[in-house]
């Protein structure tokens, strides 16, 4: 196996991982952009999506439909979360919002444990998805899940691009993120925009949850925790609140993580997560507006 194959293989891994991070980070940024809410409970919509898909496939629903059910369930979960927990504290200080979201995630994860148990559940895949292709005598492998992940990510992100530039709701979401007061003045129904933002963001989380579970082969209530933290890093690298930045950050982070494991010595590569979060702190300190926006000051 030569080095080029190795690089290509790592590239496939990076794109696949980066797609998942991008899907989660986009939702975080959509909600943060409009509400300034650092939503820790966003990751739990991955659990909602994945378990909904699991339950529907156990009930005999075809897998592709099951993915749709996971996405819709994620969106519904996001809308309920907004109505029950976030609307009552809307307009409160940043820290109150953040703490509320911590409480929401705590409730949802424990609810998940209560309902599904804390042990991982097998996530069955249909045969047509349980395949992989090998090239160059096994030097290059990619699974149909990799392909599905990238394909669905691309399709859903194209949809997002269309949505935020062509529909009044999407444009309104961007407008409200920029200037909530002016959005009120032009007659946008800001309440509805916020609900739409949660639905959209959580639908992406639901999709990410299904794909994450498909890659891991298992689902469990705490599955959204680590991806959520990584998505924070991705969103902040890209500039928190910016949709394009979140995508960029997601793929950058995926690439970086794969590179740490693939190219750094074995003594260092286990420290991947500490390195990634140290990077987060560096960004918050020196580039709080993200890579693309060096001048946004959030420091004191």
């Amino acid at each position: 196996m030569d080095y080029a194959d190795y690089l290509i293989q790592q590239g496939i891994n990076a794109i696949s991982l980066g797609s998942l991070y991008a899907l989660v980070a986009v939702g975080l940024s959509i909600v943060f952009g409009i509400l300034r809410l650092t939503n820790f409970a966003h990751g739990d919509m991955m659990m909602v999506g994945a378990f909904s898909t699991l339950l529907s496939s156990l009930a005999g629903v075809p897998f592709l439909w099951g993915i749709g059910i996971g996405v819709v369930a994620g969106a519904a979960g996001g809308m309920i979360m907004e109505r029950v927990a976030y609307r009552p504290v809307r307009g409160a200080p940043d820290v109150t919002l953040l703490l509320t979201s911590l409480a929401v995630t705590y409730i949802l994860e424990n609810l998940g444990i209560l309902v599904f148990g804390s042990s991982p559940k097998n996530f069955p895949l249909p045969d047509w998805l349980d395949t992989s292709w090998e090239f160059r005598d096994g030097a290059l492998t990619f699974t149909s899940i990799n392909v599905l992940t990238v394909a669905l990510t691309v399709v859903s992100l194209l949809f997002l691009g269309w949505f935020v530039t062509r529909t009044t709701t999407g444009l309104g979401m961007r407008a409200a993120a920029e200037d909530m007061g002016a959005a009120h003045l032009v007659g946008l129904n800001v309440n509805r925009l916020i609900v739409a933002a949660f639905a959209l963001a959580s639908a992406y989380a639901g999709l990410a949850g299904v794909l994450w579970a498909a890659q891991a082969g298992v689902v469990q209530p705490l599955m959204g925790f680590t991806p959520l933290l990584k998505a924070f890093v991705a969103a902040i690298i890209g500039g928190f609140g910016s949709i394009g930045g979140a995508l960029f950050g997601g793929y950058l982070l995926g690439t970086l993580e794969v590179a740490i494991v693939a190219f750094l010595p074995d003594e260092i590569s286990p420290y991947r997560d500490p390195i990634v979060f140290a990077l987060l702190i560096v960004f918050l300190l020196f580039r709080p507006g993200g890579i693309l926006q060096p001048n946004r000051e959030e420091k004191l």
């Binding site: 530039t165 009044t168 444009l171 309104g172 961007r174 407008a175 920029e178 200037d179 007061g181 002016a182 959005a183 003045l185 032009v186 007659g187 946008l188």
Partner: peptide, 18 residues
């Protein structure tokens, strides 16, 4: 208070959102 990141056409479109 125009929406700075939106285009002129998009701003006008939102003006008619109601």
């Amino acid at each position: 208070r125009v929406f700075a990141s939106l285009t002129v056409a998009e701003n006008l479109r939102l003006g008619a959102a109601s």
